[in-house]
Amino acid sequence: MSRQVLLSVAVTVGAPVVLLSWLWLVERLLRPLSYRGRRRARPWLWLAPPLAVVGLYLVWPLLSTIWTSFQVRGGQHGLDNYRYLVHSGEVHDALVNNGLWLVGLTAGSLVAGTAVAVLAHLVRWETAAKAVVVMPAAISTVAAAVIWRFMFDYRPPGVAQTGTLNAIVTAAGAEPVAWLVDERTNNAALIGVGIWMSVGLVTVVMSASIKAIPAELIDAGRVDGAGPFRLFRYVVLPQLLPTIVVVSTLLAITALKAFDVVYVMTNGNYDTNVLANLMYRELFLNADYGRSAALAVLLVILVLPVVAVNLRFFRKGRA
């Protein structure tokens, strides 16, 4: 116990001391350089400690994952795991489903979140209206998945329906739907849970962005005779664009790493599997580290364009 206390004190005091000494050392080393040389070298040297930490915790694991992905079960190295990615039907199915998630979750959450943010801005009970939409964001994904399993619960026709949705459907006179089993509805049902979870965050961010639009712009538009729709299309929307790009990026990444909702609700059965669930299976059940690393690399590659779009957009914005 006392050792832990001593250690935490040592770290609290020690870390700033080490950092400050590093900066002092950097300045000493820079002294002989010319003004321009100092200007050039200083940012890199100052940034070196955090870069080293990031390298240790992010870059090195990434590189070792890539190395592992060439490791075939049994010991030797080769392209077998990538051949599996190219030829395996289950990977293709998961890719298609991840594609559905990417489009469905991103578009769904963005449209719903923006709509709520814009409309709530216009009503008096804005806080209450937004609170209802934001609340699910505070629930853990696994808990949300369990809640929605009750919502989607299916009982055979003729028996009292315990699931909320099927109770409504049968009250309207239709046959109950096995939402999570029927391949026409199950991916939509799962993505719907994803949207329900993420729409709150979108609303909060979009709402803040709407509030930041200068009132003069809106007034100028009104004076020029724009109706509410043209006002939204030509004045509000362009102002929101940077926020939309950021939020879409976040949503796209969320869609690609979709795991918990699928794992809890169907475990990938009935054609609902996603890449992260396959990776989980290879990693923890099959203990095939090469294969799961290859799936991780695939996920990284899929995320790259999203990140690239984001970076490009902001570089353009700054220039």
Binding site: Y57, L58, P61, L62, S64, T65, S140, T141, V142, V146, K257, F259, D260, Y263, V264, A276, M279, Y280, L283, F284, A296, L299
Partner: peptide
């Protein structure tokens, strides 16, 4: 690796549930 950590965390929650 970050992703794996996240999945581990998710898995831990799932255990409690399953």
């Amino acid at each position: 690796m970050n992703r794996i950590t996240r999945i581990c965390a998710a898995a831990t929650v799932v255990l409690a549930l399953s």
